[in-house]
């Protein structure tokens, strides 16, 4: 299935919902042949569980009513490159393809830190490589993350010594 901007728009909506819930604003949708199976937003704070990333929220919802074989014909749209944990989880559920917004320099598992999605050493009968394509609505995803971190810093219990961060609006071009 080719990239369809309307699904990334839905993922962005899910990211905004996460933002309003004081979570790191990352959102995603799983799409099977034109049908949205589930949306997910980050929930580590609400769940007290640092592993409750947007992808896991949606995967759990899908598996509550579908067999895992459904992922063979399912694509993921996610606003930020999946982290190393989620990148591995996506192999293990057998995702077909991943479209993401901005890269994840600190934790990215689809090329930024590791190539978990393509690494041949990770091949097992239940962990298959998958294609991944970044840069879709990258600027929007970055702006939302920046807004989040500016808000975090300004609400920190003890103000940092350096001046509160201001929102940077220029975005370096993708490398």
């Amino acid at each position: 299935m080719a990239y369809d901007p309307k699904y990334m728009a839905l993922a962005m909506e899910a990211a905004h919902v996460a933002y309003s819930s004081l979570e790191v604003p990352v959102g995603c949708v799983f799409v099977r042949n034109g049908e949205v199976l589930a949306r997910g937003g980050n929930r580590p704070n609400a769940s007290l569980n640092a592993t409750r990333h947007a992808e896991f929220e949606a995967i759990d919802e899908i598996l509550s009513s579908h067999p895992s074989s459904i992922f063979r014909e399912t694509d993921l749209y996610v606003t930020v490159e999946p982290c190393i944990m989620c990148a591995s989880a996506l192999r293990q559920i057998g995702i077909r393809k991943v479209y993401f917004g901005c890269g994840n320099d600190k934790f990215g598992g689809n090329g930024s830190v590791f190539d978990v999605n393509q690494d041949e050493r990770l091949l097992t009968p239940t962990s298959l490589p998958y294609e991944s394509e970044g840069g879709h609505r990258r600027e929007d995803a970055i702006m939302l993350l920046r807004k989040f971190y500016v808000r975090e810093n300004n609400h920190a219990p003890q103000p940092k010594k350096k001046a509160n961060r201001v929102l940077k609006t220029e975005i370096e071009s993708s490398s």
Binding site: P44, N49, A50, T51, C83, I84, M85, C86, A87, S88, A89, Q92, F107, G109, F114, V116, L122
Partner: peptide
């Protein structure tokens, strides 16, 4: 632990 579990442990500090 596999990659997913190892990174989950890192996220959980």
């Amino acid at each position: 632990p596999c990659t997913m579990c190892s990174m989950a442990l890192l996220h959980s500090r």
